[in-house]
Design a protein around this nucleic acid. Structure first.
Length: 741
DNA sequence: GAGCACTGC
């Protein structure tokens, strides 16, 4: 049996943890940190005073690692060792070691801010710097100060940023645990290629002709390039002289792939003790096995045959391909970025960081010494690449995170001063505050409102939560739940984006829902309702070119949201559906079915900064919430024009994406009378007041010079609990009805 | 008239 490297450090780790509340562990790949740290602490008795929690950025990782640890300890999964991910809690009263996604831990801390049930919290894979991990890092820093004794935090990170994390935690000790990787020889290009596609192709063929056996993993940026390279590579390999080198199999690997494989290759699914296994037969001669939950892609490696896996960064962390000896690294990755001044997302091809480059190279040394071909010069790696990837917190809209932090009621919390490992820009935080103010989650002084608290309970972006609450008021909650759930699942709904899919679908079934002209949100609602009427039959999805996986996800989300809304309805006394005797409410409920008026209005209230006005002479739009920009309705939209060929005067959009041009994706018609009050509110908005930069800025700066104490008093004085009047009105109505019965 | 890297509550 192979001894994992980390076990040789058991005593050192325990000694350091004993003497310090926070320890950073630099665990290289293959060190066994994810499975062993929790067991080491368990053996020492840390599970007697509480649970040892280990967070993971991904669901599959939480499940598979928990499974492994349960197996190693010889216990049943869900008893002493368990896991918790969204929609699935496999823990019990017996659970002493708990694996969970960082999102779930954040949710837990909402109802139990001190996380008292845990004696140790291990933040695993912190170097990936997910949005949730970054927030947890900030919270842990506060928590170790609050829970001085009997609480330990361990953070696992990468070589390049371990010191930074240590500094963040008052120079806590750092332990390095070596991995089990074989050496990887790094080869650089002399210069940067003009086309990294051609360059990858050439390098791959060179390897195939010259190098010994071993699979080749090629990192590309996206589906398009992957498909191009796969077909070119196939062509070139075929043209090689028969018998001059071994056979080759070329495989694409990217996020939207498995369902496609399922469709064209016929997967068979079965479960074994490790996870979900999918087997497929390619071209009738080679059998591949895809171990989905075990996060591992492997094949029984046919003799005298080399695999080329052309992959996105999914193969960097999420999936492990066994048998890889050669890595070709283009040096680029596709990244989604948010621009807080325009509210626009873009998907850009950017240079990878040194951490990413090392991670990619490491994929070559898992089973034997390997080689990594970097398609860029060594000077680029050393001088141009950043140390670490720009953390997600600096590339995302922060409305949800800011609302979350506000709802924690940390007494001295000024959101602009929250202690982040890498703080987001002031602009980005102000954008979040502005949005929260416009949806009534915070008042004009930046304090969280009653509505805001309720919104924070929902696992949704704040605008969607606000939409649900407004829909509840307007008696169309059930429909809004569907729309919100469908929007959450939207990216996984459509099948692989082979050209013409969209058209084909619309032509194939003329009675496929079209949103009745009102727009995409309504179409999503109608689609789900059709599926509901088909008794959630997977065949219905396939017949209409929708991914079963995506629809099932929407169903799960809808169920979860309904449950939470029902709970809220009870506690806050807002009503769930019209009381039988409430004639007006029932009237509204009926009207809704005709023109979706209330539903569209609820969207308008939920997305006040995502409204747009049509230009007078053409069908372009001007955005209203941010500095005005000219944008177009995305061509895939089902929003309809009137008999003059004009689109609606006002629309609400779910997302602004800059691709070839700025487009609004998921658009819905709204009425001018709903938009006007929102525009007034936008005009009145005072960002300085919202961010607590204060109405009397010079006084404020004096305060800061003195100390932090007076500020707290000031907060108490100037924060009257300005409850949302409509919620109050609903409560009054409810009480009145109750009294009259 | 266009196109989507990867996660997660």
């Amino acid at each position: 049996m192979v001894i994992l490297p980390i076990l040789q450090f058991e005593e050192k780790i325990l000694e350091t943890v004993e003497q310090n509340s926070v320890v950073v562990i630099i665990g290289e790949t293959g060190s066994g940190k994810s499975t062993q740290l929790s067991q080491i602490l368990h053996r020492k008795g840390y599970t007697k005073s509480g649970i040892v929690a280990v967070t993971q950025p991904r669901r599959v990782a939480a499940v598979s690692v928990a499974r492994r640890v349960a197996h190693e300890l010889g216990v049943r999964l869900g008893e002493e060792v368990g896991y918790a991910i969204r929609f699935e809690d496999r823990t019990s009263e017996k659970t002493r070691i708990k694996y969970l996604t960082d999102g779930v831990l954040l949710r837990e801390s909402l109802s139990n801010p001190e996380l008292n049930q845990y004696s140790v919290i291990i933040l695993d894979e912190a170097h990936e710097r997910s949005l949730n991990t970054d927030i947890l890092l900030g919270l842990m820093k506060r928590l170790v100060e609050m829970r001085l004794s009997n609480f330990k935090v361990l953070i696992t990170s990468a070589t390049l940023d371990g010191d930074k994390v240590s500094r963040f935690f008052s120079n806590c000790p750092t332990l390095t645990v070596p991995g089990k990787l074989f050496p990887v020889e790094i080869m650089y290009s002399r210069e940067r290629p003009t086309s990294y596609l051609e360059s990858s192709l050439k390098t791959a063929l060179d390897i195939h002709i010259r190098e010994a056996k071993g699979d080749v993993l090629i990192f590309m940026t996206g589906q398009d390039d992957i498909e191009k390279l796969v077909s070119k590579l196939e062509e070139r390999v075929k043209s090689l002289e028969e018998g001059s080198c071994m056979d080759a199999i070329i495989l694409p690997l990217h996020g939207s792939l498995p369902p496609e494989m399922q469709a064209s290759w016929g997967f068979e699914e079965q479960f074994d003790e490790v996870g979900l296994v999918r087997t497929c037969n390619i071209k009738g001669n080679v059998t591949y096995t895809w171990l989905v939950l075990g996060v591992r892609v492997f094949s029984p490696a046919p003799a005298n045959c080399r695999r080329f896996i052309v992959a996105t960064n999914i193969a960097e962390t999420s999936l492990t391909v066994d048998g890889v000896v050669y890595v070709i690294d283009s040096g680029y990755v596709k990244q989604r970025q948010y621009n807080p001044s325009t509210g626009m997302y873009s998907l850009d091809i950017v240079q990878i960081s040194r951490v990413q480059a090392n991670q990619r190279a490491g994929r070559a040394g898992r089973t034997c010494p390997g080689k990594c071909y970097r398609l860029y010069p060594s000077a680029v790696y050393h001088e141009e690449f950043a140390d670490v990837t720009v953390p997600e917190i600096q590339r995302s809209s922060l409305a949800g995170s800011v609302l979350y932090l506000k709802s924690l009621d940390l007494s001295d919390l000024d959101i602009l001063k929250f202690d982040f490992l890498d703080p987001p820009s002031r602009e980005s935080l102000e954008d979040a505050l502005k949005q929260l103010y416009l949806i009534d989650a915070i008042d004009e002084n930046g304090s969280i409102t009653h509505v805001g608290r309720t919104m924070a309970e929902l696992p949704l972006e704040p605008s969607l939560s606000r939409t649900l609450m407004e829909a509840n008021e307007l008696s169309c909650l059930s429909q809004a739940l569907t729309i919100v759930a469908m929007l959450s699942a939207e990216t996984t709904l459509l099948p692989g984006r082979s050209k013409g899919t969209e058209k084909k679908r619309k032509h194939a079934s003329p009675d496929f829902p079209d949103g009745s002209g009102w727009g995409d949100h309504i179409q999503l609602l109608q689609v789900y309702d059709h599926w509901d009427q088909a008794n959630y039959d997977p065949r219905w999805c396939k017949d209409n070119d929708l991914q079963v996986r995506g629809m099932m996800f929407a169903k799960d989300v809808r169920k979860q949201l309904s449950q939470i809304m029902q709970k809220i309805a009870k506690e806050n006394m807002v009503f769930w559906k019209p009381e039988p005797l409430d004639v007006q409410a029932n009237q509204r409920w009926k009207e809704n079915r005709r023109d979706y008026k209330n539903l569209r209005k609820a969207l308008c209230i939920g997305f006040p900064n995502q409204l747009a006005e049509r230009m007078i002479h053409h069908n372009g739009y001007r955005t209203l919430g941010y500095k005005p920009q000219l944008v177009q309705v995305h061509p895939s939209s089902v929003l309809r024009t009137d008999e003059d060929g004009k689109l609606p005067n006002y629309v609400v959009y779910h997302e602004l994406v800059a691709t070839s041009r700025p487009f609004m994706r998921n658009v819905c018609a709204v009425e001018m009378s709903w938009v006007m009050p929102i525009l007034k509110k936008l005009e009145k908005l005072n960002i300085n007041k919202l961010s607590g930069a204060s109405d009397a800025s010079d006084e404020r700066s004096k305060e800061e010079d003195l100390s932090d104490l007076p500020k707290k008093e000031l907060d108490v004085v100037r924060a009257p609990d300005d409850r949302d009047s409509r919620i109050q009105a609903a409560r009054d109505r409810f009480l009145a009805r109750k009294a009259s019965r």
